[in-house]
Amino acid sequence: MSQKYGLRVTNVFHAGDGNLHPLILYDANVPGELARAEAFGAEILALCVEVGGVLTGEHGVGVEKRDLMGTMFDADDLAQQMRVKSAFDPEGRLNPGKVFPQLHRCAELGHLHVHRGQIPFPHLPRL
């Protein structure tokens, strides 16, 4: 992969508990290197999932790994997690845009709360 993307990678492991911390070296001043580094990272994660691992062992899914959730979970898996989010946060106020790849589905699933005739996130595209 390092050859494919033309970027060096330093590997640090928490070997005992199966954690890998690949550090992809790129120069932000070189046009295209950041995008290549991100694609490189995504391919590493896809391989982890393929061999039975997961996307993250320590820091969770925020924004950078959000769109890779689909490599580990199918639509029904993600829909169930998003319904649980809606149970805790029916109006989608808490960190919208984090964790789940298709934001609009968060408001779409579960109980859509209509408050004073307004639906939440009217600007979001809906299915």
Binding site: H14, G57, E58, G60, V61, D76, D77, Q80, Q81
Partner: peptide, 26 residues
């Protein structure tokens, strides 16, 4: 399988996993 008849999975097979919601705990 949930009460909608949908098959789904959660968690994984590794001890350190913080991907998405930890539904096994729930």
């Amino acid at each position: 399988v949930n009460g909608r008849g949908e098959a789904f999975k959660a968690g994984g097979r590794v001890v350190k996993n913080v991907t998405g919601f930890d539904l096994p705990k729930l």
